[in-house]
Design a protein around this nucleic acid. Sequence first.
DNA 1: ATGAAAGCGCTAACAG
DNA 2: CTGTTAGCGCTTTCAT
Lengths: 340, 340
Amino acid sequence: MDQITSIKEIAQICGVSASTVSRVLNGKSYVKEETRRKVLDAVRRTNFRPNLLARSLKQGNARTICLMVPSYGNLIFPEIMRGVNSVALDRGYTTFFSITDERQETEEGIYNKMRNQQVEGFIICSAIGDETAIYRLCEEGVPVVLVNRFQKEDLGRLDTISVDNYRAGYVSTQYLLRSGRKRIAIACGDPGLFLYNERYRGYRDALRDAGREIDPRLVLQEPPEGHDGYYDIVKRIMLQENAPDAFFATADPKAFVIMRALHDLKLRIPGDVSVIGIDNAELSAYMEPPLTTVAQPLCRMGQEAMQMLLRQIEYKREKGTLPPPETITLPFDLLVRQST
Amino acid sequence: MDQITSIKEIAQICGVSASTVSRVLNGKSYVKEETRRKVLDAVRRTNFRPNLLARSLKQGNARTICLMVPSYGNLIFPEIMRGVNSVALDRGYTTFFSITDERQETEEGIYNKMRNQQVEGFIICSAIGDETAIYRLCEEGVPVVLVNRFQKEDLGRLDTISVDNYRAGYVSTQYLLRSGRKRIAIACGDPGLFLYNERYRGYRDALRDAGREIDPRLVLQEPPEGHDGYYDIVKRIMLQENAPDAFFATADPKAFVIMRALHDLKLRIPGDVSVIGIDNAELSAYMEPPLTTVAQPLCRMGQEAMQMLLRQIEYKREKGTLPPPETITLPFDLLVRQST
DNA sequence: ATGAAAGCGCTAACAG
DNA sequence: CTGTTAGCGCTTTCAT
């Protein structure tokens, strides 16, 4: 016997109409118990699989969303994906995913392709400062949630979720100060990203509030090669006079590189130099020494992001328009380990 | 003006028929240049997006595939995903992804849901030893590629791709022997997984070929807690007499834990003990000392997996049946760093 | 080169 | 409680 491919065939087998089968399958309407059972039985026997594409086409909603991550250079994304996926699964949604590798052109192409796929919304972890394409989405009524990466101007324009990056920077720096460090260098991230600017502002204010001057020589900018570039920078700065006695890395992977450079210089961590990071990427606990870091609730971030997206989707279904944007700020946690 | 939602409206605007618009849009058939331009113009002006769901329904192929990963405990998956995604994108496919968290029940549920979504195939990185559900897929003519995790019996039954894990184990062990290590412990992985057994076999044979006895006390089994459990095991074994002078970790994350334990014991790596891993997970170069490891070509693995899947899909489209299974074994690379 | 018509598999009025 | 009918947006003969 060949595969049953449609509700109609099931209907024929059971001697009922297609609508009845449909009703049984999605249980929205009452069906006589006897026919119900008969249908269910036939479905099971024939291994019938309802075509979700047809259903989506008919109903005008695909129950799919798109999750976009920038690349895997940064280890926080897997956890976020996990969170998104878990909620999506629970709520009957399926997730398309896409890696943009930070290339703007592809990014817009992907939005378009996904919209053609009739996805109901986007969770974007890959915004890069130029949000015009994303605003276009919103204007056209597409639900969007920005995770972690967004600009200040995005607040109130669309749904965002992150930790308080200013506080995270502040707390990290303060912790270094309190542990007696005098010359704290900061390894900044991409200056185009709000989150890194916030972390920098936190650093600056923590120093200022402690009555310290900001030494511009200690404000390290990420070189074009990405994290890895910090290797040379650290090696160089540690040989100068007035070398720093602590590094505040604005993301864990930068901390890893910095520690590598310090080890290679035979400097002791935290004896000679402290290092603190932000993220709590999966491996920071395994560094030598284990990295003190500001832990973001990554999985939860993904979960909440998906919930925010569903809120928009449902609101839109009901009222035909996007709800007023929401901003969620999650708490973080300073994990003191042995690098400070 | 409200959104144009169908080809028909475009047709009306241009004073042609829907079929013509369709023809223009997918360029399969010749259309007079003038009308072509007229249609394309209207499409652009109205920002029309063709509904891929409808097309898929009509054509009976959705141009989507499903990628399944077990969890993010192991850092090799992001790279594989990246590889899969890149080829999929090039070939006009869109990728659903799903994290199974190694829970068998959900896994079957996901297969079903995805098949209802009409995905054209599966790339599975999450097989767990009981492949019956997967075999069922194949029997029903669903293209499947198994990446990395599969059983010996799977070879020749379905498409698989991996490195030669036996050789990888052999080479790692041999390298430790040649660097003068006498008592090499192995940190085994899940014994239910073929790949770990292969790596173990490689270890065993390398020792045997070097005329060494296998000391069962040095064959360490992964405790139920996963990698982390090795922490206590290492601490214990290093205090016994005849402690090992090297660890062969059958996956990098295990190596990280082992190094952590060794550091905490104040042992020097590689002075007192060498450590070698397999994977070249993103961070192994940042360990202290940088981890010597057998690098798998992860991204390429994902790319080739996707190509294998496409091969099956295309063959099936033509001949209506799956092609004979293929087995790809990729080369690996011993990256000697400072942990040995 | 283009149009008319049928239909992919499903759901949702509407009628009974 | 169930069947009939229409149609979601698209492609694809078959005509012309």
